[in-house]
Design a protein around this nucleic acid. Structure first.
Length: 260
DNA sequence: CCAGACGTTGTT
DNA sequence: GTCTGG
DNA sequence: CCAGACGTTGTT
DNA sequence: GTCTGG
């Protein structure tokens, strides 16, 4: 769940929506098909309390890993168990982050008449107003066992060998009733500024954090079928999020808890 | 004790 | 079938 | 998440 | 690094 997303929102809008105080990367381009292992902007709370938007690679590499390829399998963490799992618990305590996106993809299998293999059909899930939102994440810094003394072994590594690899993972939670027809899990969406601030607060208490990681209400999202071209990670263009003409749609859920 | 894993998803 | 890479 | 690879030796 | 399994 949540293995592909979009981030096409302009940088200045991200800065405004996420109250970013420092932008720590240079190049920005709209992304319509973000895949694991790629590097994307993520929000953290810096030591000075200011929020930083910086580049991180998707797929968390724990600080103790010997081989960074473990990150290929650490693209999601279950909210229900993240505090206990060896790969995530330290990051959960000290390195929470917010992953900005303006939509994510889910696939459903569709049987095809006369064919043995069902099609994998992608859907783009997003806010009805298409504004960006944050998802709860964790991040890590990996130095590959290096002690920081590049001279010791003759510093034969190519490039910037001492730059740590910075990685992140996206938390998942149970699907809301609205989401269930599409999937049984969904990303842990931070539905307002207060939840976002609490998630980034190093002092946040466990009860509050658990509360934040509950499924977003159905009124928050809508979804529609998109082209199977999205299946290929190499296809990254605006048409990725265009509704298929005669495709399935999942309109947003009317607010069931609106005041009378 | 040492060795080996450390994760999630979906599908059958 | 299962793992790696994007 | 899906797509694509999945291997070694020796020779140019 | 830390836990689980043998």
């Amino acid at each position: 769940m949540c293995g592909r997303y979009t981030l096409a929102t302009p940088l200045d809008e991200l800065v405004e929506v996420f109250d970013v105080g420092h932008v720590a990367f240079d190049s920005w381009q709209p992304r319509f098909n973000v895949a694991p292992t790629q590097t994307l902007p993520v929000v953290i709370r810096g030591p000075d309390g200011l929020r930083r938007l910086g580049p991180m690679r998707w797929g968390l590499v724990p600080f103790w890993a010997k081989d960074p390829s473990i990150g290929n399998r650490m693209i999601n963490a279950r909210s229900e168990t993240v505090a206990k799992k060896p790969a995530f618990r330290e990051a959960f305590r000290r390195r929470r982050c917010v992953v900005p996106m303006d939509g994510f993809y889910e696939w459903r299998a569709r049987a095809v008449e006369g064919s043995k293999k069902p099609l994998k059909v992608p859907f783009w899930i997003h806010r009805p107003d298409r504004r960006p939102f944050g998802v709860a994440g964790l991040w890590e810094r990996w130095r590959g066992g290096r002690k920081g003394d590049a001279d010791a072994d003759g510093a034969k590594d190519v490039g910037d060998a001492d730059a740590p690899l910075v990685t992140f993972t996206i938390l998942t939670t149970a699907a809301s009733p609205w989401m269930t027809p599409l999937h049984d899990r969904m990303p842990a969406i931070l539905t307002d500024a207060e939840a976002t601030a609490a998630w980034l607060d190093p002092e946040a208490d466990a009860g509050r954090l658990a509360d934040i990681l509950k499924p977003a209400p159905g009124a928050f999202l809508e979804a529609w079928e998109v082209s199977r071209a999205v299946n290929r990670p190499a296809v990254d263009e605006a048409d990725c999020v265009a509704a298929v003409g005669d495709g399935e749609r999942f309109p947003t859920e009317p607010g069931a808890d609106e005041p009378a």
